[in-house]
């Protein structure tokens, strides 16, 4: 190969690599200001002290993770403009991507540590899994609707959330091969909590289930399995609201 052609080939290769690097890193850099504003909104909601937030506020690691995930790449093209607004957005198939504040609360509630294995039931857009990814050692996610599951898996792989594994299937039985889980997030609505999920929750583990409609979360349910294996649940309001005028009940 003549030197000039060689140079051209090298140049082309370098360009291709540069383009590839830019195209994978650009999204994360993109819309940083909006993401920062989103984090501020979350902090301000959390600051009004709903029962779902502990005294010290939302874990900074959770906020950092959310600050690094390009949420706009997890919503349909038509919704990208509104991706960083503090609201749920439709993603098709009757499913939604949760409001950032609710994602923050749910992630905070399960208290994921660096060595933890987390199960998500209801992958949806894959956004919740992406937020969990830097916080946990491994995230397993199950989606019932094949189109959503395949799309989320491809998106997570493309954005290099390498410790997330997505499968399409029935979430009722959990993912016994990787159990027990230190944290479980159930985003798919259910009339009851599947017993296999309770079983696959590790001792000391936490499961969070949002209760309500697709655009209106009523409360977050936290299921805790104590060290002795006993189960308790807590029902936490995402807002601070006292039902009695002029003070608390009695």
């Amino acid at each position: 190969m003549p030197p000039l052609a060689q140079c051209q080939a090298l140049l082309a290769a370098a360009l291709a690599i540069a383009v590839a690097v830019v195209s994978t890193s650009a999204p994360a850099q993109d819309r940083l200001a909006e993401r920062a504003a989103m984090i501020e909104t979350i902090k301000s909601h959390a600051g009004s002290a709903p029962s779902a937030v502990e005294a010290q506020g939302i874990d900074p690691a959770v906020l950092k993770a959310m600050g690094n995930v390009p949420r706009h790449l997890f919503v349909p093209e038509a919704q990208r403009g509104a991706a960083y607004r503090d609201r749920p957005l439709p993603i098709g198939f009757g499913q939604t991507i949760s409001q950032p504040f609710i994602v923050a609360l749910m992630t905070d509630l399960i208290k994921v540590g660096p060595g933890d294995t987390v199960l998500e039931v209801g992958t949806g857009s894959g956004y919740q899994a992406a937020v969990l990814s830097p916080l946990a050692a491994k995230v397993y996610s199950i989606e019932i609707i094949p189109e959503l599951g395949h799309r989320a898996a491809a998106r997570l792989a493309e954005l290099r959330f390498d410790n997330v594994e997505v499968k399409v299937g029935d979430g009722y039985y959990g993912w016994p091969a990787h159990a027990p889980f230190d944290g479980i997030v159930v985003t798919a609505a259910a009339s009851h909590i599947p017993p296999p999920l309770v079983e696959q929750l590790a001792k000391g583990g936490r499961m969070v289930v949002p209760v309500g409609g697709p655009f209106a979360i009523q409360l977050l349910m936290l299921v805790e399995k104590r060290r002795d294996g006993s189960i308790t649940t807590r029902q936490l309001l995402p807002v601070s609201f006292v039902p009695l005028r002029g003070g608390r009940v009695r």
């Binding site: 409001q99 609360l105 209106a216 979360i217 995402p238 807002v239 601070s240 609201f241």
Partner: peptide, 8 residues
């Protein structure tokens, strides 16, 4: 409160 999670 409705956009902070109180819509329900």
């Amino acid at each position: 409160l409705h956009t902070q999670g109180g819509a329900a």
